[in-house]
C-alpha cells in the first residue's frame, strides 16, 4: 500500500533480481550446451557427407582397394566387413541371448546374478582395443597361423555379447509374470515357456539388441588392427588376413595420397549411413512395439 519502500523490501527486490539473473544465465548456458552438441553432430555429419560424396560411385562397390594413385574401390573391404560382422553376430547372438536368459529367468535377484550382470556391464564399456589384445593372445598368438579373419570375428563377437546379454535380460524382464505363470500352469516345461512364450514376447527387443550390436561393431577399428589385420586383395579365406572397411579407412587416412583419402571418406560416408540407419531402425522397432503393448 505504501509507495515508500522499506529497506527490507528493497533488499528482497535486489535479491529477486539477482536470482532471476542467475536463472537467466543458467538457462541460456543450458541452451548453449544443447546447441554445442547439435553443432558438432551437424559438423561431423556434414564433413563426412561433403568429403565422402565425391568418392561414391559404382567402382566403390565393385573394385578392390587400389595401390596408391590408382583408381579402385572398397569391394574387398565391404565384403570382409560383412563376413566378419556376420560371423561375430552368429557367434555372439546365441551366446548373448542364452546368458541374458539365464540372468532374467534363472538368476533373478540372486547374488551370482548380480555379479554376472555387473561383469557384463563392465565388459559393455570396456575399451575395445583391450578385447582385441585379448583375442590376439588367445587366438592369433596361440594358433600360430598369424592374423586371420576368424580372429577378427571373434574379437567383434566379444563386443556383441555384452550388448545382447543386456538387452535380452532387460527385455525378458519386461514380459509380464502372468505370461510365465499362465504357461507354467498349463504344464508347459520351462524351456518351452522361455522359447515359445517369452522369446516371442520379447522378440522385438532382442532383435533391437542385435541391430544395436551390429551398428556398434561395423565401425570398430581398434580390435581388428591386430586380429584380422588387412588385406589388399579379395579374400574369402577365414584363416588368412581379411580387409575390413574401418581398417582400410585407417590405413588410407594415415597415407599422404589424395586418392586414398577420397576412398577413406567414401568408406566413412557409407559406414556412417549404415550405422545411423541401423540405430534409427532399432529405435523404430522398439517404439512401435511399445505402442502395441500399451
Amino acid at each position: 500500500m505504501n509507495p515508500v519502500q522499506s529497506p527490507q523490501n528493497r533488499t528482497s527486490q535486489r535479491l529477486l533480481r539477482k536470482r532471476s539473473a542467475i536463472n537467466a544465465i543458467a538457462m541460456t548456458l543450458s541452451c548453449a550446451a544443447a546447441l554445442f552438441g547439435l553443432v558438432f553432430l551437424g559438423w561431423i555429419l556434414w564433413t563426412t557427407i561433403s568429403k565422402g560424396l565425391v568418392g561414391i560411385d559404382w567402382a566403390l562397390f565393385t573394385q578392390s582397394t587400389p595401390p596408391p594413385q590408382e583408381s579402385g574401390g572398397l569391394a574387398n573391404a565391404f565384403f570382409g566387413s560383412a563376413i566378419m560382422c556376420g560371423l561375430a553376430i552368429l557367434m555372439g547372438a546365441p551366446l548373448g541371448i542364452a546368458a541374458g536368459t539365464w540372468l532374467s529367468e534363472y538368476a533373478g535377484a540372486r547374488r551370482i546374478g548380480m555379479v554376472v550382470r555387473f561383469v557384463n556391464d563392465i565388459l559393455l564399456s570396456a575399451p575395445s582395443i583391450v578385447l582385441g589384445l585379448f583375442v590376439y593372445t588367445l587366438v592369433v598368438a596361440q594358433m600360430g597361423t598369424g592374423f586371420s579373419a576368424i580372429a577378427g570375428a571373434i574379437s567383434l563377437a566379444f563386443i556383441v555379447i555384452p550388448v545382447i546379454v543386456r538387452t535380452t535380460d532387460e527385455m525378458l524382464r519386461l514380459v509380464p509374470a502372468q505370461m510365465r505363470e499362465a504357461a507354467l500352469s498349463l504344464g508347459v516345461p520351462q524351456w518351452k515357456v522361455i522359447v515359445q512364450v517369452l522369446y516371442r514376447g520379447a522378440s522385438a527387443g532382442i532383435v533391437t539388441g542385435i541391430l544395436l550390436a551390429l551398428a556398434r561393431i561395423s565401425g570398430e577399428t581398434a580390435p581388428l588392427l591386430f586380429t584380422s589385420f588387412g588385406n589388399q586383395y579379395w579374400s574369402t579365406d577365414l584363416a588368412s588376413p581379411m580387409a575390413s572397411v574401418p581398417v582400410v579407412m585407417n590405413q588410407f587416412t594415415a597415407s599422404p595420397y589424395e586418392s586414398w583419402h577420397t576412398l577413406a571418406w567414401a568408406g566413412a560416408l557409407v559406414l556412417t549411413f549404415f550405422v545411423l540407419v541401423l540405430s534409427l531402425l532399432a529405435r523404430a522397432i522398439l517404439s512401435r512395439n511399445k505402442v502395441r503393448h500399451d
Partner: peptide, 10 residues
C-alpha cells in the same frame, strides 16, 4: 553412434 574412427578423421 558415430564410429570412433570418423571422429578421428574429422
Amino acid at each position: 553412434g558415430i564410429p570412433s574412427i570418423i571422429y578421428g578423421m574429422w
